[in-house]
């Protein structure tokens, strides 16, 4: 998928915005990312992931209805340049976003989820095709 998705309706964005905490918690619950890790390490990764997911949620809630990809593209650039230095490769970020999308599908009404999911799919597509260093 490469075309930038059409802006979702205000009702879909409102539900997405209001149910952010549930979506983030559900993503962490579904994620097998830090399960192999023990004790403190698992705690650190889980808390970094929560912070990242909360940020992603607020970014999407903030600009989902802005036509044009510039703002989300800027976030992709930042994620692929900075996050590897925080221990998250683009492949990990893409996997987390896929779980985030799964959580959106399980939390929002089907109609609203179908409007938000293409944005996350677009982000995944951009992150997996972006060069991993030297952008932005």
């Amino acid at each position: 998928m490469s075309g930038f998705p059409a802006p979702p309706s205000s009702a879909a964005v409102a539900e997405f915005r209001d149910r952010g905490e549930e979506i983030v918690s559900k993503t962490l619950e579904l994620s097998d990312f830090y399960r192999g890790l023990e004790g403190e390490d698992a705690g650190i990764v889980a808390s970094k992931m929560r912070k990242g997911l909360e940020m992603t949620h607020r970014v999407v809630a903030s600009v989902a209805q802005v036509p044009g990809p510039a703002l989300l593209q800027d976030q992709v650039s930042w994620a692929t340049t900075r996050l590897p230095h925080e221990g998250f490769t683009p492949a990990m970020v893409a996997a987390n976003l896929a779980t985030f999308n799964d959580a959106i599908g399980r939390t929002l009404t089907a109609e609203h989820a179908a409007e938000i999911e293409p944005i996350i799919e677009w982000l995944i597509d951009q992150i997996t095709t972006a060069p991993s260093e030297g952008m932005g």
Partner: peptide
């Protein structure tokens, strides 16, 4: 921060 655009709005 892009995530604060909603607060500006």
């Amino acid at each position: 921060m892009t995530f604060n655009v909603e607060k500006v709005r």
